[in-house]
Design a protein around this nucleic acid. Sequence first.
DNA 1: AGCAGATAAATTGTTGACAATATGAAAGAG
DNA 2: CTCTTTCATATTGTCAACAATTTATCTGCT
Lengths: 228, 228
Amino acid sequence: MKEDADRSSPTLSASAFDRLRQAIVAGELPPGAKINEPQLSRQFGISRGPLREAIRRLEGCKLVEIRPNAGAKVVSLNRSQVTEIYEIREALEGLACRLAARRAGAGDCLQLRQLLAEHEHQLQSVDGKHYDQQEGDLDFHFLIVQLSGNSQLFSLLCGELYHLLRLCRAQTSGIRARPARAFKEHHQIVDALERGDGELAELLMRRHICGAKETFLNELNQTITPDS
Amino acid sequence: MKEDADRSSPTLSASAFDRLRQAIVAGELPPGAKINEPQLSRQFGISRGPLREAIRRLEGCKLVEIRPNAGAKVVSLNRSQVTEIYEIREALEGLACRLAARRAGAGDCLQLRQLLAEHEHQLQSVDGKHYDQQEGDLDFHFLIVQLSGNSQLFSLLCGELYHLLRLCRAQTSGIRARPARAFKEHHQIVDALERGDGELAELLMRRHICGAKETFLNELNQTITPDS
DNA sequence: AGCAGATAAATTGTTGACAATATGAAAGAG
DNA sequence: CTCTTTCATATTGTCAACAATTTATCTGCT
């Protein structure tokens, strides 16, 4: 949580929302952490009014839980809840892929390939940056959701679910498994998109996410086990 | 928008949230309507602080759109956006059905049948109450989502999407088509759930929602066409 | 010592006032 | 007459203080 002044956001409430969300998904405010309004208002140099509005917006993203008269806490997800999120993600990104296959042009697929190439390059050169590979993975999925053309789906996945996923990932050690396999699967998905094969693209994406779920659950097992 | 004092909610903000959401999904605050803070705060007899918090929560439900320094408006969905929502709903409720088939016991299915019987009875007796049939339809879907056991899915569908659907329905004339067909499809879905056939239950639910989408889009065409 | 209840501190909920911005109306130029 | 500019109004954004509730601390009793 940096103490920098303002991120040139139109309103203090929006700025606080951005900063808080960033702090949460980065793990600086770990799951279960209490949201202390006086402390944060001092830290951000703003009043409690806009801060509370930001917290209510975070509640809408399901990143914090508010208990009346007892304040807000960063949401803490146990294994079954993480599984639930991956189930939802599988269904929604499968849909995104099916839709994207009908709308993606040659340029779109090229953009996807370039993105994958960049990530592959970053991974091969600097081995210490698995962290970025994580964010890169979301970039890929982000782009496909955008290609789907379904704006409601976009706001659901990129506005809520992906942030929840980043929050979950911040809980684990940060050591990523199976980057090579993920790249292969990503390319296969683009293959299907290029052919306009929505059915296959959906199937591949669902499998890809299902595998990611199992990988992540294994990582959770190897991490400390508070189970929240 | 009733002027009654308070609905015994723990906090004024939560109370205002409930009242505003109800007013929106009931069509009392129609799509595109401006959310006037001074007016509503007078109307609710509360200060603007908790009211603003309620509005930020409504934004999280996607029921209002906030433009910085210009206030909030009730969201207005055009045909393509409604289509997008139905696409998402199809994927998510398909998932819900598949999951519910694995968890639903005999008692759960009986409860579903009873619910359907009640609705069928209401429909046959009082013909003027198509309106309730609408809400009853959501009750059925609500129960299935609950049976899925996926709490994240529940909060997504019942906390957000269903309210959006009710908002959309308030735009149309209120004259419901195809109640008989819907009942038949509902029963077929319960049939599949009873047999524990998740694949079939998902397929039937997806078809059911797809049909509901087309019906609704036709109703929209017969209504006035501002297209927002 | 350990626990129950009372007291004090801290935090959340709420309010009304002030500042900044946007909306709408009136006046003036082309 | 239309468009632009200016000004008045209304609304949003923010703040600091107060009230209500919860949490923590400290007694006093068994």
